[in-house]
Design a protein around this nucleic acid. Structure first.
Length: 268
DNA sequence: GCCCAGGTATAAA
DNA sequence: TTTATACATGGG
């Protein structure tokens, strides 16, 4: 068991159930069971201590990074809130959101599955994907390796009931397994080039690419303010110009997404 | 039954 | 370059 003390600005439900990760399930006691990096754990918050049950000290750095504990989200939230009142409202609504640093391939595949889909069903498909093709580990199944996934027939993938996304999953797994996707470029290269790199995959457009870059490669600096967000800002504050989301655009975007999910009436 | 869901590929203007 | 439509599946 690992304990991180004095963790601020983290709410597990807000972070693990806000549509960025699809592998966490809440227990009645408010803790969450989940798997990342082929490790099955239960995470809970005891006061300001983050408890990772099922993990050893060897993995302290790994979980510190996963929950992005080295970034001061209080500072980020204050900065974002100053950019536009809509951002202030969204950040205030769920101040415990953090942007997780998930594994790139898992993020890519889960957001391919997310297209024209709902979170409940996304979780089901991801769950079947891991049970069918992931390595069994203590407490569940790891997310499948690209190589293993790339070897699956169309018939095998059909058991996931992912619908038209099955061939997208297959193409992504093949390209990643062959090394045709340059993760280093995605992580550190020009944002446009990183986006284009992921869009080499069939079924990956700007939205899936942006979500993969944000949640899988932590490109928090460049999430575009899309037309939908601009419309929301103009509707709520018609007298103001839509703001750029600034240095932490990806985090701002996640506050907004969560807020819109909980208050759909405000966003039409 | 009908509508829609963290969109994208494809065809057509 | 921009705009309509199909797409598989299942929850509300």
């Amino acid at each position: 068991m690992i304990v991180f003390e004095n963790v601020a600005d983290l709410d597990l439900a807000q972070t693990l159930d806000c549509g960025q990760s699809f592998r966490w399930t809440e227990r009645p006691d408010g803790s969450f069971d989940g798997i990342a990096f082929s490790r099955s754990v239960n995470v809970s918050l005891d006061g300001s201590s983050l408890v990772i049950d099922g993990a050893g000290e060897d993995d302290r750095a790994l979980w510190r990074e996963y929950f992005d504990l080295d970034l001061d989200y209080g500072m980020v939230r204050r900065q974002i809130s100053g950019l536009h009142p809509v951002l202030a409202r969204a950040a205030e609504y769920a101040p415990g959101i953090r942007v997780l640093r998930q594994e790139p391939f898992e993020t890519l595949i889960t957001f391919i599955i997310s297209q024209n889909n709902n979170i409940k069903r996304i979780k089901g498909i991801v769950s079947r994907l891991c049970e069918s093709f992931g390595e069994p580990i203590s407490g569940g199944f790891a997310f499948p390796a690209a190589q293993r996934l790339s070897e699956q027939s169309a018939e095998a993938l059909a058991t996931l009931r992912a619908g038209f996304r099955a061939r997208y999953i297959s193409d992504a797994a093949k390209k990643v397994a062959r090394g045709e996707i340059d993760w280093q470029l995605c992580r550190t290269g020009d944002y446009g080039a990183a986006r284009a790199e992921l869009m080499k995959i069939t079924g990956v457009g700007v939205k899936v690419a942006d979500c993969t870059l944000l949640f899988g490669l932590h490109r928090i600096e460049a999430f575009p303010v899309d037309v939908w967000m601009k419309r929301a800002m103009e509707k709520l504050f018609p007298e103001m110009a839509p703001a750029d989301f600034g240095e932490y655009a990806g985090i701002a975007q996640q506050y907004i997404f969560n807020y819109s999910r909980m208050h759909p009436e405000i966003f039409e």
